[in-house]
Simulated scan of single mutants.
Amino acid sequence: MANSKVGLFFGSFNPIHIGHLIIANYMANYTFLDEVWFVVSPQNPFKDKKSLGNMYDRLEMVNLAIDGADNLRASDIEFSLPQPSYTIDTLTHLSEKYPTKEFLLIMGEDNLMGLTKWKNADILLRDYKIIVYPRPGYDAGEMRNHPAISMTDTPVMELSSTFLRNAIKEGKSVKFYTPDPVIDFIDKKGLYS
């Protein structure tokens, strides 16, 4: 039996919103991937630690958001890996842990532009495939034609977690921007306010 293909969608998901869900759903159902895992980052090396919501809360919000979707799952794999987590280390770890799965990387075209600066980018591009969703205003140029890269027509919306956090802080409604169970969780725990 062929290895199942798993797309890894890394992010802080602080909080998760429908932009993330649309990308994951498209990748899981409209491409050659069998499933998509949301890899919740405990701490992005490029982000200020203080601005991140509790990682268990962020993981729980992802689980609430994808409840009932059988080809989407949340992964806390990076919670137990050395900090800060680098994508190549996580990929290597997962490939060893799940030898029957083939892991691919999902990323936005904006990240693709800076990929060559990543830790072990050459190994990443040699050993793994990368599936890219478009981002308005970004063009990865030559990188688009790299043999490891697959461009997609994923529908994209300009919605950010920062927008949601600010709206919540200002007491504005975020209905429809993230699933209702996530909103209830945020309300109950008093997150971002």
Rank of each mutant, 00 (worst) to 15 (best):
Y30K: 15
S150T: 15
G68C: 13
T154R: 03
L21V: 13
K175Q: 12
Q43Y: 06
I106M: 05
K169W: 08
L191M: 11
M107Y: 00
L94H: 03
A24H: 07
P155V: 13
I186A: 12
E109F: 01
I131E: 08
Y138Q: 03
L124Y: 03
G141W: 02
K189E: 14
L164F: 08
L124V: 08
P45S: 07
N44W: 01
N63M: 12
Q43N: 11
Q43S: 10
L159V: 15
N3E: 13
T87Y: 02
A2Y: 02
Y56T: 09
K169V: 15
D127K: 11
A148P: 01
S160T: 09
G11M: 01
D184C: 09
N145R: 15
M107H: 06
P84Y: 07
P134W: 02
I130A: 09
Y192C: 15
D180P: 15
P155Q: 10
I149P: 12
I131W: 06
F79L: 11
I183Q: 10
G141T: 04
A167H: 12
K169T: 12
V39Q: 05
I131F: 07
F46C: 02
I123A: 08
L115F: 04
L21F: 01
F103D: 09
E102P: 04
M107V: 08
K117G: 13
S173E: 12
S193T: 12
K189D: 10
K172I: 07
E78M: 01
L105Y: 00
L81Q: 15
P134E: 06
R165K: 13
S4P: 00
D70I: 04
L33W: 09
K97A: 14
